[in-house]
Design a protein around this nucleic acid. Structure first.
Length: 273
DNA sequence: TGCTGAGCAGTTATTACTTCA
DNA sequence: ATTGAAGTAATAACTGCTCAG
């Protein structure tokens, strides 16, 4: 049951086709034989292919039990009609798959069925994906043969698998950035607090001691704050690793006002201590 | 420069499962 | 406890686009 689904505006049916979707969706099947053969998942699956006068092919495939140990039996009926449009790899197919045991196989075709890969197929595909996330044409064909799938299905599976991997990685990255943002927010709060403390120290009454060059700025009533008050907040940061402040020693090189020896880099989770 | 094949992003449709009345 | 409808997640398959060769 390795049919590929296509949307068929002409037949208001869920279409599942083997041997080619429409248009560019099935590039790998350009060499598809004129008469579509239902590819069976299992060599033991009996299949029947009928060629209709109007180039429509009806295929019935009964599958089950004997393939790879999966227990789901199914009956698949596919209808394919050659469509003279956009090249040779065009075809349409109607298929319905239903559990053979008790389920009806006479559905009106208004719903299209989707292939579900068996656990064995998925496992092998996963294994191959772990080795290489892409396949060259030869590998694709070989793997398809091994899985009793069509190369197009293997191709699609790998595409979807890559997309899922990327999506997961994006989620991980997003989570990481979220944590970074939280870390930076917390860091910002800490720095704000520290700034307030320093300001309070600055404006507190000071004992009449001799002043050095670093704090001999204008009086507190002056509109321009002393030099260290103009430093970027980061220069006063507390290293989360060693819990020391960079500007705590009171000795700041005026030529390197932005030196942040203990600045914590949330992207590397490291501090340049 | 046009063609072709491959990969990707976005989307659709189906299936399986869960929840709830 | 059972059942059917509704909701949801997973995923196979498709379309359209870009890009390299």
């Amino acid at each position: 049951m390795a049919q590929e689904e296509v949307h068929d505006a002409g037949l208001a049916l869920g279409l599942s086709l083997g041997g080619g979707g429409s248009g560019r969706g099935d590039r790998s099947n350009s060499s598809r034989p004129a008469r579509w053969e239902a590819p069976s998942q299992c060599p033991l699956e009996p299949s029947l292919t009928l060629s209709m006068p109007d180039d429509t092919t009806v295929t019935a495939t009964a599958s089950g039990g004997g393939c790879g140990g999966h227990s789901v039996s199914s009956l698949s009926v596919g209808v394919k009609r050659e469509r003279p449009e956009e090249g040779a790899d065009l075809g349409e197919m109607v298929s319905s798959t239903a559990a053979a045991a008790g389920a009806e196989d006479d559905d009106d075709g208004s719903t299209r069925k989707k292939l579900r890969l068996t656990k064995e197929q998925s496992a092998l595909l996963e294994d191959r994906f772990k080795e290489h996330s892409t396949l060259n044409p030869k590998q694709k064909v070989a793997l398809a043969k091994q899985l009793n799938l069509r190369p197009r299905q293997v191709e699609v599976w790998f595409q979807n698998r890559r997309a899922r991997t990327k999506l997961k990685q994006t989620e991980v990255d997003c989570e990481f950035l979220k944590r970074c943002c939280e870390t930076l927010t917390e860091e910002n709060r800490r720095l704000q607090r520290e700034l307030q403390e320093l300001r309070a120290l600055k404006f507190a009454p000071q004992p009449p001691t001799t002043t050095n060059a670093s704090n001999s700025g204008p009086p507190s009533s002056s509109p321009t704050p002393p030099f260290y008050m103009q430093l970027p907040a980061a220069t006063l940061s507390i290293c989360p690793s060693c819990e020391r402040t960079t500007a705590g020693g009171g000795k700041v090189d005026p030529d390197r006002p932005k030196a942040t020896h203990h600045f914590f880099n949330p992207f590397t989770h490291s501090a340049a201590c």
